[in-house]
Amino acid sequence: MVACNGSTLHRIPLLNAEEIEKVAHLARLGLNREEREAYALDLSRILDLVSQMNAVATDGVEPMTHPDEAGLRLRPDGVSGEIDRDRLLAIAPKTRDGLYLVPKVIE
């Protein structure tokens, strides 16, 4: 396969059902069969697109994590802002004695 810029793309194999299942599980997504097939195709295309970058020589180039290298602004250490616990708790489906209640998690 030849891309429009003339570089050669290596067609990566379609993600298999098991890989899709694993990714969906990690993201806590429930997919039916049709969705699994659709995602397999979509995600494979995305990987395909990204793989074009492999053609670029990047030896010695620092990976960039953020386009803006102005850096992180630091906040002075101090307590600020309001905490309205009752308003926050009111959003939750279930609470008790100031705690959020969730389905039992067993270690």
Binding site: R75, V79, S80, E82, G98
Partner: peptide, 23 residues
């Protein structure tokens, strides 16, 4: 620290549940 790493909520130990957690 007096406040959280990414928010201005206090870090003191032993407060009533969820009184030191902001948005």
């Amino acid at each position: 620290t007096k406040s959280k790493i990414f928010s201005g909520a206090p870090t003191a130990y032993g407060a009533a549940p969820n009184t030191q957690a902001n948005v």
